[in-house]
């Protein structure tokens, strides 16, 4: 679905030529390469950063930092892996790093690794709720749960990739997803109830 991009310089068109000694491998080529494959994901990264930071300015900072860090480590990008997932991994690292500078968000405890029902339940009266209300409810759930809900339910990453992006075990992803969905549903129910849409 998403481009799987190889960073091995010898596997790129320029690299193949370079390996034959026809054209020296140039940094400018790498810059073009990076821009071509990485910049199209800016909107996705921004949306994720916005939901994670809940602040447009911080989200923009996080995206800029993500691209700088990604460029600096582009040579180390693993060949054959998904560049989109790799960029998200860099983004979460940046958000985590910046978050420590901004303030201390309380993290959730994963001590109870209970695999509850992971299946999504319907949003209560979803048709009656606005985007802003859904986003407000999403922003209100604990950050660690929110990250998993966004990665799995919104960005459609498989559990395994979500686990790699967040540097947590796959079981933790499933557990957080279940709890995140439950927390989101409860908040949306409260909102819907306040409108008298549901009892």
């Amino acid at each position: 679905m998403f481009p799987v991009y190889a960073t091995d310089p010898w596997s790129s068109p320029w690299g193949q030529v370079s390996k034959l000694g026809l054209i020296p491998f140039r940094k400018a080529d790498r810059a073009d390469e990076f821009d071509t494959v990485a910049l199209p994901f800016m909107d996705d990264l921004f949306r994720m950063a916005l939901r994670m930071t809940r602040d447009r300015g911080r989200a923009e900072d996080a995206v800029q930092e993500t691209y700088l860090q990604a460029w600096k480590s582009f040579d180390r990008f693993e060949a054959g892996t998904n560049i989109r997932a790799w960029l998200y991994k860099v983004l979460f690292n940046c958000v985590h790093h910046q978050r420590r500078k901004w303030l201390r968000f309380p993290g959730v405890s994963d001590s109870e690794m209970v695999l509850e029902q992971v299946q999504a339940s319907p949003l209560p009266a979803a048709d009656h709720l606005t985007d802003a209300e859904i986003l407000a409810a999403l922003d209100d759930i604990p950050e660690d749960y929110r990250a998993v809900v966004l990665l799995v339910d919104v960005e459609e990453f498989p559990y395994k990739e979500a686990a790699e992006i967040l540097h947590v075990p796959i079981g933790t992803v499933m557990s957080r997803l279940s709890r995140g969905r439950k927390a989101l549903r409860e908040r949306l129910e409260e909102t819907a109830r306040s409108y008298g849409v549901v009892k």
């Binding site: 949306r47 939901r51 995206v63 985007d131 999403l138 809900v149």
Partner: peptide
């Protein structure tokens, strides 16, 4: 659920 959530999140643009 996913569709509604995705649509809400994607309403934000860089």
């Amino acid at each position: 659920y996913r569709s509604r959530l995705r649509s809400a999140v994607h309403s934000a643009q860089a």
